[in-house]
Amino acid sequence: MSALGELRRIKGTSAPKSRKQNTAAFLFLLPWFIGLALITVGPMAASFALSFTRYNLLSPPRFIGIENYLRMLQDERLHTALAVTFQYVFISVPLQLGLALALAILLDRGLRGLSLYRSAFYLPSLLGASVAIAILWRQLFGVDGLVNVVLGWFGIEGQGWISNPETALGTLMILNVWTFGAPMVIFLAGLRQIPVMYYEAASVDGANRWQQFRRITLPMLTPIIFFNLILQLIGAFQSFTQAFVVSGGTGGPVDSTLFYTLYLYQQGFANLNMGYASAMAWLLLVIVAALTAINFWASKYWVFYDDQD
């Protein structure tokens, strides 16, 4: 809190409480409102309605009450999918964000060739969803993959990391961490957003580099850290492509990479059970919304906004 207090002190003034600006806000929000009304709400509401139906896409939906929701209680694969997804989210998101933040600070400034390094670290995230990823990953973590070759140099006998139920999810976490370039870019932009005058004022006060980092960089970056956290959280819960391409759409081996959204997709499009898939989607929404709400609540204690009073 002392860092925040200091920033407020540096900032000096505080903005006056403003009146409601409904008209201006409405005009600024108009495109979004139109999109919300025409494109977002209809399909969302439809998917909610479909969650109470049996709907195979080929024939009209048939109302079945809360049967889909009751079925979720019994569905063991769904429970597996939840467990897999929670593990994935809670391990890979912090790892990825930590690495992204560290590299962003390292690559911020003060070194020759930074733009090349940034591009190199960013390139993997560009590969994104391509089929090539699956093949590349098998080349790395397969039975005859590079990882095992390297382990072999040290006399360690490797294994099929990607198709062993114990380690398959781990390789997908590494895959996610590997694409840390995306949050890194946002951190880089955030670092450059910090007004120089704060550093100036701090150095006048005789703060050293570490103190500047602790008292200025970190607190000023918290809104961006917070954004990345929320973004990665929502994104990780909806992770689909990586597991889809690496496991060939099965979520295997032995359902060890059966991400929630992958199972939802299997239900909706392979089993043509779109009613059930919709119910699953709304359960996911409730889970993600609850976690997001908790984060927003917790953010009051650690996120510093420059426009707060």
Binding site: A134, R138, V143, Q159, G160, S163, G248, T250, G252
Partner: peptide, 13 residues
Amino acid sequence: PDPAATIERESGG
């Protein structure tokens, strides 16, 4: 082959 190798190749097409 052992199961891990089998599953790995299977997902590769």
